[in-house]
Design a protein around this nucleic acid. Structure first.
Lengths: 339, 339
DNA sequence: CTAAATCCTGCAATCGATTGCACAGATGTA
DNA sequence: TACATCTGTGCAATCGATTGCAGGATTTAG
């Protein structure tokens, strides 16, 4: 790659010592240098097209101004907004983001973690559900600063930024109750994930509160296919026993759509469906999906804010930030059918 | 972050000199060291939990094993697959990926470019349509190695990996022709983008070939809103003058959906619509979108392959790789309505 | 048995910055 | 006038690796 000028070149051009040039160019040390010298050095730097070599700086300062972001899969539509939120906060502050995908594979997660460590990232933002408490405690003991986003690990030593899952599920159940539904089904995601557990518990509680009957079935992953096969299995032995579905997320809801169609059921006429996340294009599905909007971009922003604070300020206590969610009513929910 | 052991610690533990430890641990130099010494050093490294500091190595070797990926917007669903394709090829080969979003803003693009340079990336994969030939030539003069993906700049000094846009559009037009459509409309994207021009030209050519009437309208961006407003404008003065639409991409097609609905037209009964890209969830739209599948993941893989070749091998001539596309027929196209 | 070649390993320079310390000259204080 | 303080700059060590070169030990050749 290009042979860009170094600080020595700038110093020579300005007729000062290397260290003077360094101080002149550095925000925090330029006060030590006389204004004329600063001007001279800045001009030389500009003339030569000097840009700092962050690798060299990083070696000396032990700060790379790089944050590692660990996600399961960037093609899952909820993650790009999170990543952009992180980036939008960090970018203007001189930080860059290294994104890795683990596909929820612990082996892959370990490898990527090692790779990020080798690269001397200043901190980690973890969005994978899989990472268990032992690993996290381990990270913490190694002195690694990190923040969880969209997932929380109860008892984990790190701050977390999450959506208010429980009240989201509540909103969904209340909406169905108001439409006259009595018998509901919840599709829950993998048990390792904290969101799965939170949402499932909230579902049970909300059903009880509203005096509804609520069943729960498990999905092996947060994917369309997993949702579809779980729903297929359910419908094969329980046709016409429920009128409303609260899916663990939008992908599962989409799987439910497919399954309903395959079983000759219409949404929302026969069965109402509610998703979670309000993923991009949820409004363009068939039918447009009623769902809980979780502020993913904002979650990214908040996670970035916290980690920067931990890196540059002093370590705060492991706070938990819970962002509010809202119900978006679209075409997949309707008045309950008599069954 | 953690105080990990350095090479000196390993060398001491193994009772050898720093440089010997370095050579022992390095694939390409370990042959210079006696097998027993290599074993001793490896054991010491393992025992201490040593991992190399890539920042220090990067300073010395002038290779950071990092590739910068410049995209307009990660939340645009075609980019995550590209990024994952890149990552899947580069990751196992020891490279990491720094993704930046420009939002198609030249100022932002320049800033991000500078940031990547400061970080000493080994190469750039550019997926932004906006980057013009002058800038690219400029990069090239600075000795920067780069590859274009999903966009090509004719006459640019860099290799490019693209989908076969022209034959994709051909497939679409042929499909509509076979369904009896006579009057078609093409929504083209921003003129700066090479794909826009290629697709528009292919559309005109294909219409001529099939003896069809083909109109073209421009959209200000590749977005739902831009597609909708362009289509609105068209329909307001040209209701019932076309029966088929070939959109510049899936997002524009979605905009067309919205516009048709607002004008009381049904897809596909009144108007057939074809998209481009086969973005995720295109099958779940209302109606499921007939579209051209472009192999984005594979494009990422190929771009990564080429750039690694340029970095590690010798610079090849600026090749252009054109990946085949296929027509995916779903529910948005039907036999033409009489108008 | 000696000279040459080969094999290992250590020494030290280097990559491009940052930063504690020293010191010269200017300024302030009594 | 004498001494303390302050300002601005330079010197040199340092971050953690890689790598050309030198040289001792060992092997091979003649």
């Amino acid at each position: 790659m290009g042979n860009r000028p170094t600080l020595i070149d700038v110093a020579k051009a300005a007729g000062v010592h290397l260290s003077t040039a360094s101080r002149a160019l550095n925000e925090s040390t330029s006060a030590q240098i006389s204004p004329e010298t600063v001007k001279k050095v800045s001009k030389a730097a500009r003339d030569l097209g000097y840009t700092i070599n962050t690798v060299a700086r990083g070696l000396r300062t032990k700060r790379t101004q790089t944050i590692g972001v660990i996600v399961p899969d960037l093609t899952n539509p909820i993650f790009p907004p999170i990543v952009r939120g992180i980036d939008s906060f960090l970018g203007p502050r001189g930080y860059s983001v290294l994104v890795v995908n683990t596909d929820n594979d612990p082996e892959s997660e370990r490898n990527h973690f090692e790779s990020l460590m080798r690269r001397q990232v200043d901190g980690l933002i973890i969005a994978t559900g899989h990472t268990d408490k032992i690993i996290l405690a381990n990270y913490h003991n190694q002195g690694i600063t990190a923040v969880m986003v969209n997932r929380e690990a109860a008892g984990a030593p790190y701050p977390a930024v999450v959506g208010d899952d429980a009240s989201g599920i509540n909103l969904g159940v209340a909406h169905l109750a108001a439409l006259g539904h009595k018998k509901l089904l919840h599709l829950t995601g993998p048990a390792e994930s904290s969101t799965s557990r939170t949402r499932a518990q909230a579902f049970s509680a909300a059903c009880k509160n509203h005096g509804l009957q609520g069943k729960i079935i498990k999905c092996s992953a947060y994917s369309i296919d997993a949702g579809q096969s779980a729903m297929d299995k359910f419908l094969n032995q329980n046709l016409h026993t429920i009128t409303g579905v609260v899916a663990g997320n939008d992908l599962l809801a989409l799987g439910v759509y497919h399954s309903l169609r395959a079983h000759g059921l219409k949404c929302p006429q026969d069965v109402s469906v509610i998703g979670f996340n309000n993923m991009p294009f949820a409004n363009d599905f068939q039918p447009p999906l009623t769902t809980i909007d979780a502020p993913h971009y904002e979650m990214g922003v908040q996670a970035a804010r916290i980690i920067l604070n931990e890196i540059e300020g002093e370590a705060s206590s492991p706070v938990k930030i819970m962002l509010p969610v809202t119900l978006i009513v679209r075409g997949s929910t309707a008045v309950a059918k008599k069954i």
